[in-house]
């Protein structure tokens, strides 16, 4: 499909350098890649300028040297804009988007638990989804992680006593 989609045109008008990075998979599915340094600025534009105001899903990916994140964002008419961005594993830290999309909180916690990526600015709260006695330094969705690692670094025996 050609890149003649009204949303693509509006993005190109504001950020001409991004227009080449957008793929139109179908009328309701747009995919784009963006460097992490520009990500938050673009997201603000997506909320205010494009009215993409529904947060659907956040996918984390282990991409060899990088951690990639796909933010699946939707508008109220059925369009999904998939924004992919990545940070190097040596600096595995991103900033929360809960200030713009409060619905993202649990899925950002998932990224922390399952990939070991720090999320700056997340409000205080319980971890999700791993148990409280999960050993430190074990991140199951990383590609090099296998279950036998838990033999060497087992679950902590006692969780904190909630009545103490």
């Amino acid at each position: 499909m050609e890149n003649n989609h009204p949303i693509v045109e509006r993005i190109a008008a504001k950020y001409p350098e991004l227009a080449g990075n957008i793929k139109v998979q179908s009328q309701n599915r747009l995919w784009m890649k963006i460097p992490y340094s520009d990500f938050r600025k673009f997201l603000e534009f997506a909320v205010t300028g494009l009215k993409i105001n529904v947060f659907c899903m956040l996918t984390g990916l282990d991409d060899k040297e990088n951690f990639s994140f796909i933010y699946h964002m939707a508008d109220l008419n059925g369009l999904i804009l998939n924004i992919e961005t990545s940070v190097p594993k040596t600096n595995a830290s991103i900033v929360t988007i809960t200030d713009m999309y409060p619905a993202a909180e649990l899925q950002e916690r998932e990224i922390t638990d399952l990939f070991g990526v720090a999320i700056e600015g997340l409000p205080e709260g319980h971890r999700y989804p791993l148990p409280d006695n999960w050993p430190e330094g074990e991140y199951p969705l990383r590609k090099d992680w296998t279950q036998d690692r838990l033999n060497k670094n087992p679950l902590k025996e006692k969780t904190e006593d909630c009545n103490a």
């Binding site: 709260g125 971890r127 999700y128 989804p129 791993l130 148990p131 969705l141 992680w145």
Partner: peptide, 14 residues
């Protein structure tokens, strides 16, 4: 109200 979930996490995605 503070929500805690994850008691049914079974690692299906992995």
């Amino acid at each position: 109200i503070l929500v805690k979930l994850g008691y049914n996490h079974r690692g299906i995605e992995k």
